[in-house]
């Protein structure tokens, strides 16, 4: 169990940092910018200025986003004695790297691309693991997941199995981490994240006319909705699912998101509503004077900000219309 008072310093620091989060006005101005130069001018007024200045080409904007997130993670890590809360956010980057490394091995690529520097396990160690060296500094759970994924791939020769196994392993470890931290806020956040992801997985697999076995393998553990519920709903049409979840916390997200999915054939609106719902949960951190909520809320807000910028940059670079971008744009935290 973590004590609220361990977060005093970090919370004070975050209160000051929250003032530098992107405001709705900034997002609007980027959205209305005529060209990329105008976008860069707006960004130069924000906290992202140093990261974007370093870029050689605007197409590398992902690098700038990564650097800015790295800075944030560094600030929060140095402000906390107990790093487990930060681990809740960085674990997914390590599993991402794990996937990239294993898939590169499968494809026979020497130097993997798309690795992120936001993880906490050094990439060199992951590469050593993939070369089959013993004595590598990779945490045990990750190593086991990697070995299992590699084994299953060799049996099935299906690269999708790698994703399924490593995603499941990530969520199993997240569940363990959250149990270990033992904070209700984090528990309910993870449960909502899992539930909403499972709903999406189920609907997607329905559209792909997949079978029950694939569904069982794809559903993530740790949600508040039983896995049996999904297995039962898998046979039913989407409106029945919407009806069945009408009394849950997710009723609005599920109704608006899935109805749009059915009519448009694209999960984009559902994904946006899910992100906004989860951000709404995180906003508790904005109103709590200090505590774990403040830290989790801020880190979640920063990740959300990167998503907003990603949608904006991709949209702007490809000259997509303002309305189309707006439809996919997430809400801001503060």
């Amino acid at each position: 169990m973590v004590r609220e008072q361990e977060f005093l310093y970090a919370s004070g620091r975050i209160r000051a940092l929250e003032t530098k989060l992107l405001s709705r006005t900034i997002v609007e101005r980027i959205l209305e910018a005529q060209d990329m130069d105008a976008v860069m001018r707006v960004l130069s007024e924000t906290d992202y200025a140093p990261d974007f200045e370093e870029l050689e080409s605007i197409y590398d904007f992902e690098k700038a986003l990564e650097n800015s997130m790295k800075r944030t993670l560094g600030v929060i890590k140095e402000s906390l004695k107990d790093q487990r809360v930060v681990r809740f956010f960085t674990l997914k980057y390590d599993y991402h790297n794990l996937k990239v490394v294993l898939k590169s091995r499968i494809l026979g690529v020497e130097v993997p691309e798309n690795l992120t520097t936001l993880g906490e396990v050094p990439v060199e160690e992951l590469l050593k693991l993939s070369k089959g060296e013993k004595d590598v500094a990779v945490p045990k759970l990750m190593r086991l997941a990697f070995e299992r994924a590699a084994e299953v791939y060799e049996e099935t020769l299906d690269p999708q199995q790698v994703d399924l196994i490593l995603d499941r392993a990530l969520y199993e470890e997240l569940n363990l981490l959250v149990q270990d931290i033992g904070h209700d806020f984090l528990k309910s956040y993870l449960a909502a994240l899992v539930d909403l992801t499972n709903i999406k997985t189920m609907v997607r697999l329905k559209y792909m006319e997949s079978d029950l076995r694939t569904l069982k393998k794809s559903l993530l553990p740790g949600g508040s909705i039983d896995l049996e519920f999904f297995e039962k709903m898998f046979q039913e049409p989407v409106p029945v699912l919407i009806e069945a979840l009408a009394a849950s916390n997710y009723s609005k997200v599920v109704k608006d998101g899935l109805e749009n999915w059915v009519s448009s054939g694209s999960p984009a609106v559902y994904e946006k509503l899910v992100d906004d719902f989860l951000l709404g949960m995180l906003r508790k951190g904005l109103y709590k004077p200090f505590g774990l909520e403040t830290v989790v809320g801020y880190l979640g807000a920063r990740e959300n900000e990167l998503k907003i910028l990603r949608v904006l940059m991709v949209g702007k670079i490809n000259g997509i219309s303002e309305d189309m971008i707006r439809e996919r744009l997430r809400d801001v935290y503060a």
Binding site: Q5, L8, Y9, A10, S11, G12, R13, I14, R15, A16, L17, S79, P289, F290
Partner: peptide, 17 residues
């Protein structure tokens, strides 16, 4: 001590406070 910790956090980012 508690208020001092929170205040130190703010001042780290903004010494004018």
């Amino acid at each position: 001590g508690m208020v001092g910790e929170a205040a130190a956090g703010v001042v780290t980012e903004d010494p004018s406070k």
